[in-house]
Design a protein around this nucleic acid. Structure first.
Lengths: 339, 339
DNA sequence: AGCCCATATTGCAACGTTGCAATCACCGTG
DNA sequence: CACGGTGATTGCAACGTTGCAATATGGGCT
């Protein structure tokens, strides 16, 4: 049986309240008393009962992080940073996965099974921010990866339009005029893909070009990238540059290029988006847009902390834009260098 | 303010206990009453307070999953499966990351901050199973990835020795005689790497060979694989086959081979271990040992469930061996096929 | 009609903790 | 010597839920 405050108190010959004071540092305790209590805690192996503490305090010390998937390199890395940032503030992260299923996304947010967390950081897939806000019903919420203009929620993201624009300009280097995009997701009707497509078109337009193809995908994984690339390489006028909206798509495309002995970057330049680990070690290494993931995580947790602790119910949603960098690597012509 | 059972009861004109019965299906309730209660629940947006429920029931409904890192493809995928398996049994997973730091590993296990979970599934890095058991102090525990002979804990893993042995035999195909291994970690003094090294040597011995080199690594990531490969390719007698103890190591090695225009598999055959997504899409695709991750997850959660629910304190530790398969792909000579 | 039983509903107490406010001991000061 | 003040300790109640056991209701049977 686990020891309780009561047991420690009995052993140390003090009141329950005093033990509580020692354990949670809530009041001044005489050194001698403290020593006696600490000894008793040690002897009994006392551990606070968090359920009781939570009940009493009304806070759980957990924040939810809701992402489409843990498994993918992008979200895996992001989750790692979020956990670090949360830990620094004394929070534990409860990681949840929606698998891109709208209904699961909703269930997690509306908390019909009960509230486990003090707040949530959500990277939505199929639910719009406005919907999120109503689902969460008062639970502090921070949204990642989209920047919708209005609404009550805080958003943290990079400037997808600007990032895609600079990607397009990078691809539209001298000698490359047939440029395609891979990664549109019109089925979702909103979100990141739209913004990147928009930026892509802007960037090409600035270079006096128009897309030669825009390939829709069902998800952002390698298999879809491979499928899309096969489609593009079969076109009568093959593209000489391809912008994939994720590194995973680009890696799938890279594989197909290798299969078909299409040289990257000589025959087709290729770039991705996200800066995942794999893209640094592929051959050729992958040009990409690198979001500042650490800063995304840091700012998101900071926003959430303010909402949870400060009760800023009235504060309107903030839009936080984190910086990104374009990393020009071998897949768009950078010199081959040892990793 | 969040609605409580008391509020719902008042609105529905029944006792608190009856509402509780409806909400948690613990007793027969007349249809008419149930309807009234459900309506009141809806109207007030009642959500059970899990802290209170946990306190009363002594269970949290959470299980901890402790892995060295979330970020890596192997653990990310495994975590996904564990979450699925847990969900089927009504549990939520609290994912924790040790980053390979022994001290953090200890802190998570001994629960000095208080118990958040009903049990844990641990993939240890630097702590031996015996130590784990004492740290956990009665908390139900299942260990992944190692199979130590004795002790009170349940273990779930593949047969690392047998898997590595078959990998070695696969590499020792006609014409390949200079075979090296990458991934030893003698600093840890125990664990998976030792077992794979052992199996590797056995497999070579069966083919009448001895290792031409065994390269130590600090971790199992790509950068270390790249470093190791550079080392191997600089040897006076270059190996004609390399067994990496993880796919990530192998992908790092593959990158270096490409840099140095060493052809895989023609000049050097290469294989990994884990069957991560990236290895299916690399060029050449990566021969690997595929553990049955779903089964690992399923069995681990099942074991833990038995311990948590059944109080099988007396039952000695079980050793559960899950199957694995060798997937022969392009990096050891399989024909190139579209992904 | 009276009785019994099954079904439906209820009250009470307890889970382990902490906020609040009261009490106690002791020291320095007027 | 009495008093005020500070520091240390304490008791009580409450957080929201559910286990237990008791009570109310109604129907069927003799």
């Amino acid at each position: 049986m686990a020891a309780r405050l009561k047991d420690v108190a009995a052993l140390a010959g003090v009141s329950v309240r005093t033990v509580s004071n020692v354990v949670s540092n809530t009041a001044t305790v005489a050194p001698a008393t403290r020593a006696r209590v600490v000894a008793a805690v040690e002897e009994l192996g006392y551990r606070p009962n968090l359920a009781a503490r939570n009940l009493r305090q009304g806070r759980t010390g957990l924040i939810g992080v809701v992402v489409p998937e843990i498994h993918s390199p992008y979200f895996g890395a992001l989750a790692g940073h979020l956990i670090d940032a949360a830990q620094e503030r004394g929070w534990t992260v409860l990681l949840e996965r929606t698998g891109g299923r709208a209904e699961l996304e909703r269930r997690l947010l509306d908390g019909s099974e009960g509230r486990r967390v003090d707040g949530m950081i959500v990277s939505p897939w199929s639910t719009s921010p406005a919907e999120l806000a109503s689902l969460a019903g008062g639970l502090p919420l921070v949204v990642l990866g989209e920047l919708e203009p209005h609404g009550p929620l805080d958003h943290v993201a990079l400037d997808n339009v600007a990032a895609a624009r600079s990607a397009a300009r990078h691809l539209a280097a001298p000698g490359r005029r047939r440029i395609a995009a891979v990664g549109l997701q019109s089925a979702l009707g909103h979100g990141t893909a739209e913004l990147r497509a928009e930026g892509f078109r802007q960037g090409l337009a600035e270079a006096g070009l128009a897309p030669v193809a825009e390939v829709e995908v069902a998800d952002l994984h390698r298999a879809e990238g491979a499928r899309a690339m096969r489609e593009l390489l079969a076109l009568p006028g093959r593209p000489d540059a391809v912008f994939c909206f994720s590194d995973e798509l680009a890696l799938g495309a890279l594989r197909v290029a290798a299969e078909q002995r299409v040289r990257v970057p000589q025959d087709v330049a290729l770039m991705g988006f996200d800066d995942i680990e794999d893209g640094r070690f592929s051959a050729p290494s992958l040009t990409t847009v690198a979001p500042d993931r650490e800063q995304i995580a840091e700012r998101a947790v900071q926003c959430l902390a303010e909402r949870v602790l400060g009760r800023l119910d009235t504060l309107p949603g903030r839009r936080i834009v984190v910086p990104h960098r374009l990393l020009a690597r071998e897949s768009t012509g950078a010199e081959v260098t040892p990793v």
